[in-house]
Simulated assay, not measured.
Amino acid sequence: MLCPTVTHCRAVASHGADVLAVHRDPDAAARLNRIPGVMAVCGAPESLPLNSACFDAVVVHQGFHELAPGLVLPEIARVLRPGSVLGVSWLVRDDTIPWVKRLAALLRTVDESAMSGDYGTESVNELISSTYFPEDEHTTKRLWVPVDRDSLIAMAAARPAVRALDSDARSELLTKVAALADDSAGTSGLRLPYQLECWRAWVDHDELTSPIGRVDDGLTITL
């Protein structure tokens, strides 16, 4: 697992997998190393401090867009065993639900970037087009996360643009958030809709072992 969180590592290890986590931050790696079933090392994903062809799977959750694909993809391919997989995923909020759209519109009256939904998922195109991973599949899982009125107000109040408002303007905005929550909850309460977007791609080591060919149309300098 590359640059994972404690929650992610603990979840994967709970299924009986032997997990090796790689994180750039030594303090984060130390925290991950205390999780049962997890061994963590400090290192750069673009230059993995690991032996070649020794892993059955590499997983990157919520952070693939922060990596340099031209460097990290050949490194991941190198440490995977032949036929093994790279998994890339993002948990993405679904802003098409009416009450969520209303909340976003309300927050954007004071912060244009509020709930912008920029998760970096477009970076997966680098994986899909990679010669190191020529075969891939994509799946989506719907998740509903319960949220109560107070949590919704706290989430709005925590935004820097909302904190920067004067007390009257902030109180007015949070009152509107509370009214939206009361109006939208219904009998089953509020649930934030998310989609877990997952890609799985199989490694092809041919690209790593191909001989380097000479380009015949290059510039020739005669000495």
Rank of each mutant, 00 (worst) to 15 (best):
S52I: 00
L20A: 01
V177E: 11
C198L: 13
C9R: 02
S52A: 15
H65L: 07
G63C: 10
G63I: 11
P134E: 08
L127Y: 02
L86I: 15
L196Q: 12
A17V: 08
P4K: 12
H8M: 12
V58L: 09
D136F: 10
R24E: 11
R24W: 05
R78C: 03
N33Q: 05
R10A: 15
L152E: 08
A181F: 01
K141E: 14
G70T: 11
F64N: 07
P146F: 05
V41E: 04
L143V: 10
S184D: 07
T7H: 12
H205A: 01
V38D: 06
T109P: 04
T220Y: 12
Y119P: 00
G189Y: 08
I35P: 10
A11V: 03
I128T: 13
D25Q: 08
R34T: 13
L32A: 04
S210G: 01
D118R: 15
A178P: 02
S116H: 14
R163M: 14
C54N: 11
R108S: 02
L91H: 03
V110L: 03
V59T: 13
E126P: 00
H205Q: 06
V58M: 06
I76N: 00
P36A: 03
M39S: 10
V162Y: 04
L32E: 06
A201Y: 11
P36V: 09
V110Q: 06
V215M: 08
G213V: 08
T131Y: 03
S129E: 15
A158T: 09
P82F: 07
A181T: 08
G70I: 10
L152P: 00
A68C: 04
V124G: 00
R159P: 06
V147G: 00
V22F: 07
L152I: 08
S184L: 09
T175K: 07
R108W: 08
S171D: 14
D216E: 14
I221Q: 05
V79Y: 04
G43D: 10
G43Y: 11
V215R: 12
D25R: 11
A57K: 13
L192P: 00
E197W: 09
D18K: 04
L91F: 04
L107T: 01
A40T: 05
Q195A: 04
W144F: 09
D136W: 13
T140Y: 06
S184H: 02
N51Q: 15
R108K: 11
V72R: 01
L174Q: 05
D166R: 02
D18H: 08
P134K: 06
L2R: 10
V177L: 09
V88K: 01
G120Y: 10
W199F: 14
D18E: 14
A157L: 03
S167T: 14
S129Y: 10
A178H: 02
A44L: 09
K101W: 06
P74Q: 01
D27V: 12
T222Y: 06
P193A: 15
